[in-house]
């Protein structure tokens, strides 16, 4: 049986999320292929415990659209952004 091809999601981190992860962007395995935004957020929290408090107060953006629900499917090639509470001005 051959190795399965795992695609990737690009995850963008801003502000306190970037500080917690230490990188502005990561290529994140899209595994399983049926991953949802909720699954992705959980896996990020597990891999980066310092990110977890920020994730609880963040908004999420998938391919430039704000997510109203984390039930949405995330696919290989998608761009997913973590937006901590805003603070311009």
């Amino acid at each position: 049986m051959g190795a399965s091809m795992v695609g990737h999601v690009t995850v963008l981190f801003f502000a306190t999320a970037r500080t917690a992860v230490g990188e502005p962007r990561l290529r994140w395995p899209c595994d399983p292929p049926t991953m949802t935004a909720r699954t992705l957020v959980r896996s990020l929290a597990e891999s980066y415990p310092k990110l977890e408090p920020t994730l609880r107060t963040s908004r999420f953006v998938l391919n430039g659209r704000y997510l109203a629900s984390l039930a949405v499917r995330v696919r290989a090639g998608d761009e997913f952004a973590v937006h901590p509470p805003y603070g311009g001005g």
Binding site: A15, G87, G88, G89
Partner: peptide, 14 residues
């Protein structure tokens, strides 16, 4: 505009 900008536009300061 300034009140909405602070809470609705993805800009951060540190």
């Amino acid at each position: 505009l300034i009140e909405e900008l602070k809470v609705k536009v993805p800009i951060w300061k540190a």
